[in-house]
Amino acid sequence: MLLPKARGELSEALYDALRSETGEVGSLHLQPTDGDDAQIALWAMYELHYAGFEDAGDEMEWHPDVLRLRRRLERDFEAELRARHTATTLDEPFAESLFSFIADHDGPSLAAYVQRKADREQVLELLRHRSIYHLKESDPIAWVVPRLPTAPKAALMELQFDEYGDGDPNRLHAHLFALGLEAAGLRPDLYAYIDDVPVEILELNNAMSLFGLHRRLRAAALGHLAAFEATSSLPSRRMAQGLARLELPPEMIAYYEEHVEADAVHEQLAVRTICGSLVAEEPQLVDDVVFGAFTCLDLEDRYAQRMLDEWAAA
């Protein structure tokens, strides 16, 4: 995998630095050209911690100048995410209250559109966009495991073990998505479509890495997980039905059908045994759980609205 296309002056300068054969990194003090530029630069720096890039030196993952730029962009991004969120207190009991907070959030539904209206090209576009996350599904939350006390750590691993196929690589969720892409005639290799994705997809992915890579934000990471899982089962059913309507291959349908059943379990675990046990031990983290949950829902809304607007205008 090679570095994606630059989207502005800052990402251009960053990639020049990451490709530097000497390991010398010049000035990375430029301001981003726009949101796309900032988000693709941040995404590329995060990616150094996952699979990396063939044209970026391995040493760059921990290069102080790269980390300094990452920190600057993260601060702006986190401030933006927090500005979008209105602090909300949760009543007792915690689990029911968090489920209600998620259920009461009203937003546009891509799954409902796919179920009834989308054409094949629109669904393939959606799958290309979703591939950025689904091909590393559950990896960002894996960073959180060593940052948790005993009970939530065990609870998170109970869920993660299922995400990673219960020990069977053939059932690993990211692998199931790769099989689906391939069967649908799309590229299953990592981030093949990164240059095609809108900024909303970059924000979705970067928020998960931001929460996952900072111990300070561990509760936001788990709140994000809870909202993600709790808004998955029913939409996955609709996605599966839409894909079947459009006669997409069974492998891709199977991916969504797996998530109907798996996420009906995972939402209970994420809310009750994972977030529930964390806030039982550290009640001061409730607000960050809610912040993470809101961010997941809000970023999904922004992506859904963008795609529905684009398709309506076409």
Binding site: F99, A103, L234, A262, D263, V265
Partner: peptide, 26 residues
Amino acid sequence: TQRPVSAVCRCGKSADQPWCDGTHKV
């Protein structure tokens, strides 16, 4: 069961019996 934890439907409305598919929420 196929997973470390399974969810058995209690509302009777799941389309994926005997497993939960989240239908209770609607």
